[in-house]
Design a binder for these strands. Sequence first.
DNA 1: AAATAACACGAAAACGGTTTCGTGTTAATA
DNA 2: TATTAACACGAAACCGTTTTCGTGTTATTT
Lengths: 339, 339
Amino acid sequence: MKAKITLKDIARELEVSISTVSKALKNSEEISRDTKEKVQAFAKLYNYKPNNIAISLKNKRTKNIGVVIPDIVHHFFTTVIRGIEKYANARGYNVIVCLSEESFDKEVINMEMLANGSIDGFIMSLSSETQQKGDYNHLKEVTEQGIPVVLFDRITQEVECDKVIIDDELGAYRATKKFIDQGKKRIALITTDDYLSVSKARTKGYRKALEESSLGIDESKILKMPSMEMDEEVIKTFLDSKNPDAVLCVNEIFAVCGMRWVQKKGLRIPEDIAFIGFTDGVLSKYANPSLTVVAQHGEKMGEESAKMLIDKVESEAEEETYQTKILEPTLVIRDSIAH
Amino acid sequence: MKAKITLKDIARELEVSISTVSKALKNSEEISRDTKEKVQAFAKLYNYKPNNIAISLKNKRTKNIGVVIPDIVHHFFTTVIRGIEKYANARGYNVIVCLSEESFDKEVINMEMLANGSIDGFIMSLSSETQQKGDYNHLKEVTEQGIPVVLFDRITQEVECDKVIIDDELGAYRATKKFIDQGKKRIALITTDDYLSVSKARTKGYRKALEESSLGIDESKILKMPSMEMDEEVIKTFLDSKNPDAVLCVNEIFAVCGMRWVQKKGLRIPEDIAFIGFTDGVLSKYANPSLTVVAQHGEKMGEESAKMLIDKVESEAEEETYQTKILEPTLVIRDSIAH
DNA sequence: AAATAACACGAAAACGGTTTCGTGTTAATA
DNA sequence: TATTAACACGAAACCGTTTTCGTGTTATTT
């Protein structure tokens, strides 16, 4: 086992000072060509690499960014991470991933763990519990400490920071409009409770489209799933009793479950009943029939978030100006609707 | 913006030395009760938290572990990360995720980035390119530097380190056996090229089961997909020409595509043709019909890997003894086979 | 020959902690 | 009263860098 070599080692071996070695390796004008060559050759020979931790301590920059998300086993978040990772890596940053698992406490603990020097900034999406509680003090604390934060997707207006979202309302609006244009009359919505910012926005878009049409809103055709957990029975009962001819779902899973059930009953998709979901994940692509979805462009979202964060981190100026970037959702047409 | 407070700040304010503050906060016996109370109260009031970087530099432990995987948008790897994260977090470690994206170069670069003090150890799964090249010098280098490494799933025998795998051969064997027991006669295999350690093992299990039976092996019934990318046409042609009555697939996607195609042709699943895949992901669960799979227990694998790594990191002893943990795969029976 | 400038390098502080060892003060002992 | 022990704290080294500033040596200028 050959241990890592340090500046001190090189200095001792070459009988020069540590500062000389440091400067020589940085090709400083201060050092003679002879010495520089000697030092650099030696460093290469012994594969010298500066210690990241020491550098971090010195310039108070870790080149790490902390990502706190509710759940990683979720296609959307996974793609966001990929976007973040790719972009951050290209700019020399590493990504520390923490999972809140939809828990307020874990979110707080994770942030505290990272906020003591481990990272230069946060990218995060709020846990459902946090959104329910409406307690954002942990966020306010880190921003007050001068640590930049970028919120994405599940955000709140109560924290002043950069944000990246997709226009969920618009996405739902367009999807619903699509149904209306195709002559669907009994358009249902399967969503979750309103405390999730995204579900709320999607419901709003759904309502808006219906209000603008001659159909109007039938409150009974809106199913609010009590939890994030799947409960197939609830969906089945809902579909059986309301008998919709089109269903908008706030995620893939609700849609796929719904499709499976109505097919079992002998209905044809999309002739008898059409489906549109949210999130362009593997499920939608490989479902039978393949599912039309409102794509959220997670990877793009990750990139944008990372860009905003790193730009802020690296900007000297302490501007107190924050922006919210709104990405446009797009409808990915597949076989679960007519086309 | 209130900046973070340091030991020095407390010392100045309270007119004691830095060492006294440090000791007082650690409840050292050396310090009088009076002073301790005073310091602790002050620290709490100003919400003092030690700087992680400084501590890391001092005791040469970062409490970070580096995870390098080929792809994060892949259910199996995602569950592994979750397992790692949960376990590591419980023991006070953070997880830095790096993506090799199946590229040898990125794998090397990522490891070099992290190996300079940023992490205490690696958990990784080899990129396909690395397995193809058979070049493991980057791994050998870090282990020689004394950085512990745990390889999982996609491993190699050429590097001496701890390993966690599932018994892929056994999984494939059992799945194939299942087909045989159910009276299937034309059992096909859809796999990838052999350079992936897992595909190789699975193929071996498939062969073993057939050899033991009266059926024997029909080489033409083995389809090696040229790349990781999906190519539906290849699968369709294969299924059409070989007309199998059972198909074992090394992942979910091959299986789901196959199912969709044969259903379109009017075949019944599982009566006319049965399917078993690998990886117990969302696809299998929500496919139509739901897919029987060999579950790989990614989360468990992640936990085990994290446990092995952290144990090694924290063990003072420099034992040069490595173990390979083999997890048992289990068959998750769903509607794509008779039961 | 003396003054000045350029050059090449080293000493030391700093980042924020931990830890060893030394020391001045007080209390207990002989 | 002199000696010793216990107590409470501080100085300083250390982790591995970066960076400022000072300085001795040589080369250039007048």
